[in-house]
Amino acid sequence: MTTTVWTRRHVLGLADFSPSEYDTVLQTAASFREVLSRRTKKVPALQGQVIANLFFEPSTRTRSSFELAAKRLSADTLNFSPGTSSLTKGETILDTAKTYLAMGANMMVIRHRNAGVPQTIAAEMDRLDTRVGILNAGDGQHEHPTQGLLDLFTICCLLNFDYPRLGLLAGKKIAIVGDIIHSRVARSNIWCLTASRAEVHLAAPPTLLPKWFAEIVDEDNSNQDSSSQIPRRQLFIHSDIEPALKDADFVMTLRLQKERMSAHLLPSLREYHQHYGITRDRLKLCKPDVKILHPGPVNRGVEISSDLMDDPQFSLISQQVTNGVAVRMALLYLMGSGSH
């Protein structure tokens, strides 16, 4: 395991992560990836601890991944389902969290359709001086830090399987294509990928491309002094896909989040695929050894052609799912055993 001391009680976002913190997560995840390759895929690292998975919105990959990660660390798990909970009787979210606190939860994994809910619960746990750690599993259009970290881990492992680290991405070009305006995944990936000195290019129809992503990074850069651990971020925005894909080393395509679209932001899914879908022809613009990522779930034939999604020569999608368990094990381990 890495010897760096972990001091974070909560992981709510990646905006203020330092390079050393990224490397700590990456190298700890690499250790747990090795554990998951063994015949006996379990370690007693968090034996006796209780992890509550409070998912207030539907999830398959993230929820299952967190539950499996906790069990691989020998922790006990409590799983929350809003449809059969006291929320239907008028209980507040904070009261729900306090109920799990009273049951002995040491950490809570929170996912909610509204931004800020994990932060609110973390603030309440701190106010009560509980020492309970809160991990954001996705909140509204804010962040999805574990998805950003598993995407980072997947890319770094491809570049150096035995020693994944942030510095491997310096100078690489990474294109993020799709429904960026609604994507918490995009925001988390922007923070971690730009921290690595990679060149990040966003591409989407103008209706799905918020200008405030560039403003966030510009503000972050302007507030840095010469002693800052975080390098100046390189982020570029395009309404056409071609300049984003030109000579890209990696392409991350994002799901069209139709459930979050309150207006007619696209003429049709067919037209979107025609202009922004990732296809074999479009990949010819990229580096010859380009790799594709997608956080899932995938709308086949919309964001990416179905055959390309299943082609191991290009697709890292299955590796992302596998790596998600190792990365979430790493975070739960660091939060559960760190000095904070």
Rank of each mutant, 00 (worst) to 15 (best):
residue 265 L to F: 08
residue 265 L to H: 04
residue 266 L to S: 06
residue 267 P to F: 04
residue 267 P to K: 01
residue 267 P to W: 01
residue 268 S to F: 08
residue 268 S to A: 05
residue 268 S to K: 02
residue 268 S to E: 08
residue 268 S to Q: 03
residue 268 S to D: 07
residue 268 S to H: 02
residue 269 L to R: 04
residue 269 L to G: 00
residue 269 L to A: 08
residue 270 R to T: 15
residue 270 R to L: 08
residue 270 R to M: 09
residue 270 R to H: 12
residue 271 E to Q: 09
residue 271 E to C: 00
residue 272 Y to Q: 00
residue 272 Y to E: 04
residue 272 Y to R: 00
residue 273 H to V: 07
residue 273 H to P: 00
residue 273 H to G: 01
residue 274 Q to G: 07
residue 274 Q to W: 03
residue 275 H to S: 09
residue 275 H to C: 08
residue 276 Y to H: 12
residue 277 G to N: 02
residue 277 G to D: 01
residue 277 G to H: 06
residue 278 I to L: 13
residue 279 T to M: 11
residue 280 R to M: 13
residue 281 D to H: 12
residue 281 D to K: 11
residue 282 R to Q: 12
residue 282 R to P: 08
residue 283 L to Q: 07
residue 283 L to N: 09
residue 284 K to W: 10
residue 284 K to A: 15
residue 285 L to M: 14
residue 285 L to H: 13
residue 286 C to T: 11
residue 286 C to Q: 02
residue 286 C to W: 05
residue 286 C to I: 14
residue 286 C to G: 12
residue 286 C to Y: 05
residue 286 C to K: 01
residue 287 K to S: 13
residue 287 K to G: 05
residue 287 K to A: 13
residue 288 P to T: 15
residue 289 D to N: 14
residue 289 D to H: 14
residue 290 V to S: 06
residue 290 V to A: 05
residue 290 V to P: 02
residue 293 L to Q: 10
residue 293 L to F: 13
residue 293 L to D: 06
residue 293 L to T: 12
residue 294 H to R: 04
residue 294 H to T: 04
residue 295 P to Y: 13
residue 295 P to L: 06
residue 295 P to M: 09
residue 295 P to S: 13
residue 297 P to T: 10
residue 297 P to Q: 02
residue 297 P to M: 03
residue 297 P to D: 09
residue 298 V to S: 03
